[in-house]
Design a protein around this nucleic acid. Structure first.
Lengths: 165, 165
DNA sequence: AATTGAAATGTTATATTATAACATTTACAC
DNA sequence: GTGTAAATGTTATAATATAACATTTCAATT
């Protein structure tokens, strides 16, 4: 795999997405175990909903989905807390330009991911940002800026949508 | 100037900022003239407030400043319209991770700027993103993704704040 | 098994950011 | 001067996110 190939390169192809979901959840269990973090049923459910979606979900989308699925009403704070946890454990990204959340495909280097966002269908490709990160690292050094985290969001048209034009 | 040097490299140094403001406003006049876009007094005032600030301002910050300065009450929509205009003409950037707006230092390539954001003092360095853009361009080609615009926001500590730690 | 302290969740209220929809005013081309 | 499009005013509301405090759950240790 090249240094900058898509992590979810099959995202825009037909595939058995249930396998993606299962893998992601298994990986999440594993990582949380390592971190001594608790992937509670609620947190797991949120992660699952995020992975089930083919595009990033807003907090209130998740809220609605959870509230439709069960009887008990859940409040925004609950969702945001679950999302905070999932971000802190590197399982989910927040895409600032969309105010929405997407599952993290990276095995490590959660902090340096890049996202290609289709402005038409809203689907997302996540890329390892190693190459970009090293450029930024260099620039940061020059500017004497201590760089902690980058967020790179690229807007455009995905292969499907650009041909529909 | 190297391909990736800061556009506002003196941002973290003491300087006569009124010159920055004047230059930015003059450039804005010029660009709007070229574009046959109207830099109305209100739009100009918003741009001026943004440049006067040493850190990005939220829409409601601007609202408050405008409403304190004059008698007439201005509504959010007015600010957002001015900001829309300033973004469309490439005079202002919206930093998605901050929900805030900052003056654009780039002479061209407004679409490809990178930002270093100090999480402590909230000041920002803007960089030309040419180098990053070319990497992204390459990746986009490989993924058959048509890339239109990128937004790169790097969070960390500026030279001043990292030494205060 | 009971105790307990920390973590997680529930609950209510509210803050913050942004837009929709329609009315009025302004500026420029003709 | 007049008509027209752009800009602004105005009112209401949508969408996103957090604060503050109460309650419950979990799991480590008696």
């Amino acid at each position: 795999m090249s240094k900058h190939s898509p992590l979810n390169s099959i995202a825009f192809q037909n595939h058995d997405h249930s396998i993606c979901i299962d893998q992601a959840l298994a990986l999440a269990e594993q990582r949380c175990h390592q971190l001594h973090a608790r992937l509670t049923p609620q947190r797991k459910r949120v992660l699952e909903l995020i992975w089930q979606s083919h595009k990033p979900l807003g907090a209130y989308d998740l809220l609605e989905m959870l509230n439709q699925a069960s009887q008990k009403r859940i409040a925004p704070a609950t969702i945001y807390r679950a999302l905070d946890f999932l971000q802190a454990t590197g399982l989910v990204h927040r895409l600032a330009s969309l105010n929405a959340f997407t599952g993290c495909c990276a095995h490590d280097s959660h902090a340096d991911c890049c996202f290609f966002i289709c402005e038409q269908c809203r689907r997302v490709i996540e890329m390892e940002g190693n190459e970009v990160a090293s450029i930024i690292d260099k620039s940061a050094r020059q500017a004497n800026f201590s760089y902690q985290q980058l967020s790179l969001e690229v807007v455009g048209l995905c292969p499907d949508c650009r041909t529909d034009q």
